[in-house]
Design a protein around this nucleic acid. Sequence first.
DNA 1: AGCCTGACTCGGA
DNA 2: CTCCGAGCCAGGC
Length: 110
Amino acid sequence: MTSESYRKIYEVVRRIPRGRVTTYGDVARLAGLSGQARQVGYALAALGDRQLPWQRVVNAAGRISFPAGSELAELQRGLLEDELVEFDAAGRIDLARFRWRPRTLGRSDR
DNA sequence: AGCCTGACTCGGA
DNA sequence: CTCCGAGCCAGGC
């Protein structure tokens, strides 16, 4: 069960395209785990050496979910900036511009 | 089992 | 804008 949920979560994260981001809640929905955003974060924390674009998952506020200034926060931000994802002065990503909208959510890209 | 914590989110004050 | 409170669920003690 857990492993099954994790598998679905990883499956979704793997599909996030470069230069785009998505939220924990969206990943949960796409993985058929609506309302379990928290478990997504949990699954990502247990990534191990899997090669997944985990940096493309941010919270619903468009912010990195690590303490500002922490090592992981810096790493994630750096990886995203390398993909040309922009952060405003407050460290927020404009989800209206960078959010990934897969067809399975009913929306097309812009 | 009970209790706390956490890469979350949403609605209300 | 910020601060709860509640819902969520896996893990560790």
